[in-house]
């Protein structure tokens, strides 16, 4: 089976300040969705990214924030195992990010041979 990375992209919304209950409900939605992929034996790994970050340019300039020039930020990723890109795309069904109007980018992971 091949591996694919689902990259979650969204535009940060500083006005969105969820309550602890809302955060809990959000975590549950994500875990139920990821659990569904894991229950098929197709889960690889996942990580959520925080908002702390800087961008470094080739000339050594360090700018604040991961989203200095682009609106969208990467919020995290899930690596899944699938036979094809289409299968990986089908797995995004039910992904909670869509509830926020944000996007998932699905990319194949290259197998480098040494």
């Amino acid at each position: 089976m091949k591996e694919f990375m689902m990259i979650f992209r969204h535009e940060p919304n500083p006005a969105y300040q969820p309550s602890p209950q809302e955060i809990e409900a959000e975590i549950k939605k994500w875990q139920d969705w990821i659990g569904g992929i894991a229950a098929q034996g197709k889960f690889g790994s996942t990580n959520q990214l925080g908002y702390e970050g800087k961008t470094i340019t080739p000339d050594g300039v360090v700018t604040d924030g991961p989203y200095a020039e682009i609106k969208e930020v990467v919020g995290g990723y899930v690596i899944v195992k699938a036979e094809s890109l289409d299968e990986a795309i089908a797995m995004t069904k039910g992904c909670p990010i869509f509830d926020h109007g944000a996007k998932v980018e699905v990319r194949n992971i290259m197998q480098l041979e040494f």
């Binding site: 549950k28 139920d32 659990g35 034996g41 889960f43």
Partner: peptide, 15 residues
């Protein structure tokens, strides 16, 4: 709900 979430994690650790 607790059991479900624990299984969600367990399956991520080991299917």
């Amino acid at each position: 709900e607790n059991i479900l979430q624990l299984y969600n994690y367990l399956l991520q650790v080991e299917y």
